[in-house]
Design a protein around this nucleic acid. Sequence first.
DNA 1: GTCTATATATCGATAGAC
DNA 2: GTCTATCGATATATAGAC
Lengths: 227, 227
Amino acid sequence: MPSTNRTRARKAGPYHHGDLRAALIDTAVELIGERGVRNFSMAEASRRLGVAASAPYAHFADRDALLAAVKVRAYDLLAAELPGIREVPDPAGRLAALTRAYVRFAASSRALFEVIYQAGLDKARYPEVEAAERPVTDFFLACVLALTAPAGDAGGAAPASVPGADGPVPDGDAAEYLATALEATAHGHAVLLLEGEFGDGPQAVSAAAERAARATLALVAGRHLLR
Amino acid sequence: MPSTNRTRARKAGPYHHGDLRAALIDTAVELIGERGVRNFSMAEASRRLGVAASAPYAHFADRDALLAAVKVRAYDLLAAELPGIREVPDPAGRLAALTRAYVRFAASSRALFEVIYQAGLDKARYPEVEAAERPVTDFFLACVLALTAPAGDAGGAAPASVPGADGPVPDGDAAEYLATALEATAHGHAVLLLEGEFGDGPQAVSAAAERAARATLALVAGRHLLR
DNA sequence: GTCTATATATCGATAGAC
DNA sequence: GTCTATCGATATATAGAC
């Protein structure tokens, strides 16, 4: 049974892992999935990997630094869904697909989702996290803008509004209102799903994702009511 | 070295608080507001109240029991908003008002909001929490039902007529779809507000509450798109 | 890069005195 | 109802050996 003994059977010396840094991230995801971010500890991760409690500190300055690395992985995984979504022809459909992917991501990678929203990391301290987040938010905002400024002046600098209109820059505000509502709705569905309000199992995930997508379309359709 | 005698100068006996149980709940809310549920500890609450670390255990079996009491207070406070909302004439307006109140509650009682969603209490162990939650959910569901089944029995009080509601009744499904979308949207806006995505200060709270209310109306208007 | 050993904390919870 | 005293567990993080 060499499987229990990871890679050492020959030397009796100190244990050398191939890539402790990567292994720590994996194990962190595991542990967070089992007991939540709040109960995640460096000590337990070390135990599970069979290394000394001090070993992680050779790779991560502290607990938060490890969590930041996990968070980067989370955004990378979510961003991997974008290419497929990009191929949906209309902007509203892309937003619905993005919402669907977001809800499914929350379910399939619960630990990563939890790290994104509950790790409580200091933003200023981990710029790499923000960089990893950017592709997702950029894509999202592009979809919303494509909806709220659909005609020829998509790239237009100054949307010189008609004096009779109700606001100085109606398109920009409209985009922001819609974006906020969509973000809140997608996130809300994901949270409700994780709390079990849709039941359990893959069919609950599908139901939540589908309903979130529908709600997205409903908000897009009624976006004139937002402000 | 008994030099640090706190507030007792008259009696040399053991310190008696007027109502330690209530004081513990207050202090828990305070501490959670400052450092989050996850960092709340019985020990620190005792310290802040100037009582022995063991004193709380005369009133609460353990840490979770205290958190459960806090959670009950949270629902009670939220439920205190209901009478005012009840006076809004139309169901959609009531739902918008409820959403507004929910978002404002999250901001004004951040600690209580956090306990509701992040305490991780065992539901079966604290039935009093579920009892405290009921008035709010009942009112919410009644509003939704008044919308989706507006014909005959709109005026009648519909408290817990069909708690399960997963039956084959078509209107019941429509109500459930709408209820889920509304809940997700309200909660999503509250979370985004607490994360600072609306900025800071009372004007950020108002903006978030107003947008959430608008999104509610948009979803109500487009509820035929849900499923 | 990992180990051993350790300093330092903080916590939950209990027993028994008053 | 509160106190003193205490046990046992667990955590973060550092220093120095190999």
